[in-house]
Write a protein that binds this DNA or RNA. Structure first.
Lengths: 335, 335
DNA sequence: CCCGGTGCTGGAGACGTGTGTATACGTATG
DNA sequence: CATACGTATACACACGTCTCCAGCACCGGG
């Protein structure tokens, strides 16, 4: 194995050593029609020389790289690593691979540009919001794109959890516990998940005849969440329940409450969205809406590959069920 | 921008449209000697046609991809996303990009193989342990490799925190609080960080004349940590302090304690390693050894690029300072 | 007028691979 | 025996870019 010290060996080197043509080497390694003895010899030689096919050269001629770009908005949000792990697994099963771009700071256009330069076969966007119109541009060019956990009015494939149903379940749960002053830590303005969850909450509150929720922007970030929750809890008429548009925001609310010595769930109930792994830790025990993580990843990869195979496909929109998981951060509202 | 519907335009297309040769287009876009008027025209045309340089074709001729492979052992361990974010930032400043491989499950050899096929310029390994000898093989072939937060006896560059000093600081802190029965949730057997932290703990315990620590393997995984900590706490002579070789293991200990209704820090003190962001959350408040994350990332990228420039460099080993951060999971040992 | 130098541009080869087309060989068939 | 056919291989080209080298125009000095 540890043979190549200079330039790595090429299929031409293999061909020379095996006494055949380069074309035969290519066919032998890719399952073409080659005599068994020849194939055997070529495989032996290529093993001996430590041959590694050059993916860039292959991409040149096939115009397929086998790479799929994945754009996330903040990789330190624990939701994303879990999602990426699923995505990577689905891609690996198809012998594709992930080129990750972290678009924190809003340089989504830069991220897309890089992925295009690398000639990825398609892109999965999970970033919360599009600021640059980069996605619309790609769709207009018929470049294969899937939006995971996010939708837009651009005509591309989308996969998401049932945010409205999840939000309704949250309201039912809180209302059942007697909560009437409910506040929301909202995600990035313009993010579809945030908008849907908010709409679902409002609709259900109205349907139950409850007062509207107070909505505070928190941009899906922990620090913003702590600031916003602190302001809510120290202001006039503090809420008896806070719904984070994100588990990270819900954790922020828990921490703000702890810092202010507001006991949870006795004086404050907290609910999140996503059900990241930490949410199920006993010391956190967050009540939250579970996102169908594995399903979203699997469908995203499938839809993307279908579109790569046929870019003219009509846009598909899939909604996967989401379910409320009740743990220990919610309890009866104080009388 | 949204022009290209068929094949994306090439530099030849630009040349044709601008009335020059392809060579001049290449020079104009890469800062070669070109008349100002010609450059202007070429830039205008390439913008108009929505030209995106083909990185695979460039890689063919320059034998540089600008891609750096990064191998992690478990991306859902929050340490890694934080580290990756730093790495990506350092790479981005050098116009390089990250090709991530999650080697969970021990398929490190597969991960390396893929990265080599993609012809990455170098690889940063942060995976906890090498099972396959893949790293040794790469080093023997003089392929640029840096080990971050991990060392081996193979002669390649390494960057790590001062694990021994960190461990000593942990022992001093616990001893000062009166702890004598200290247990350790150890990481993957063979992981250098684990070995160093363990050695540091043992040495300091011996130096202080304290009894040796009980060591339980937990493989750096949360679930293993919970099982191990539960066994410790329910067994005979339960420890008064548990040191996780990892913040994740420390959190596991906290959760095991919570499930058993063992109060922290009154009856059990818990310490971790890494200082991930969650550790500083008020509701967790984990006492832990801070890893010099940004510094490790920056030095890893710098060392890797130096080695890419000159593969014959002698191996360098850098140790960055680590510091104990005392929060609320440690307290005096019960009399 | 000739010659050398400078500044810009075009031609052409290379990088490593996949694949369509042609060729050599052996066998079966009429 | 001649033709047809199937199998296995070789030849050649294309993919898009960078870069070396040569060529061209222009200019100033001898």
């Amino acid at each position: 194995m540890a043979k190549a010290l200079g330039r790595p060996p090429t299929s031409v080197d293999i061909a020379r050593a095996a006494g055949t043509s380069q074309a035969t080497v290519s066919r032998a390694l890719n399952g073409g029609r080659v005599a068994a003895a020849t194939r055997e010899r070529i495989l032996a030689v290529s093993r001996e020389l430590g041959y590694t096919p050059n993916a860039t050269a292959r991409a040149m001629v096939t115009s397929r790289t086998g790479l799929v770009g994945v754009v996330v908005s903040d990789i330190t949000n624990p939701f994303y690593p879990e999602f990426l792990e699923e995505i990577a697994a689905c891609l690996g099963a198809r012998r594709q691979h992930m080129l990750l771009q972290n678009a924190a700071g809003g340089d989504e256009a830069d991220a897309v540009d890089l992925l295009l330069q690398q000639r990825v076969d398609g892109i999965v966007f999970t970033a919360a919001v599009e600021g640059s119109g980069a996605v619309a541009d790609l769709v207009a060019r018929r470049f294969p794109v899937v939006l995971a956990n996010r939708v837009t009015d651009t005509g591309c494939d989308t996969v998401e959890g049932d945010n409205a149903a999840g939000a309704a379940a949250v309201v039912d749960h809180l209302a059942g516990l007697g909560h009437r002053r409910i506040a929301v830590l909202a995600g990035t303005p313009g993010a579809s998940t945030s908008a849907q969850r908010l709409a679902g909450l409002r609709r259900r509150l109205a349907a139950l005849g409850l007062p509207p929720a107070r909505v505070v922007p928190a941009d899906f970030h922990y620090d913003d969440g702590v600031r916003a929750a602190t302001a809510l809890l120290t202001g006039p008429e503090p809420p008896t329940a806070i719904v984070g548009h994100n588990d990270l925001l819900a954790f922020a609310a828990l921490n703000a409450a702890a810092a202010l010595e507001v006991p949870v769930p006795e004086r404050l109930s907290v609910v999140g969205f996503d059900d990241v792994r930490q949410a199920s830790w006993p010391i956190l025990g967050l009540t939250t809406v579970r996102q169908p993580l594995a399903g979203m990843a699997a469908r995203s990869v499938e839809l993307l590959n279908e579109r790569i195979a046929d870019p003219a496909l009509p846009p598909r929109h899939e909604v996967l069920p989401a379910a409320l998981v009740v743990r220990s951060t919610t309890g009866p509202a104080r009388a």
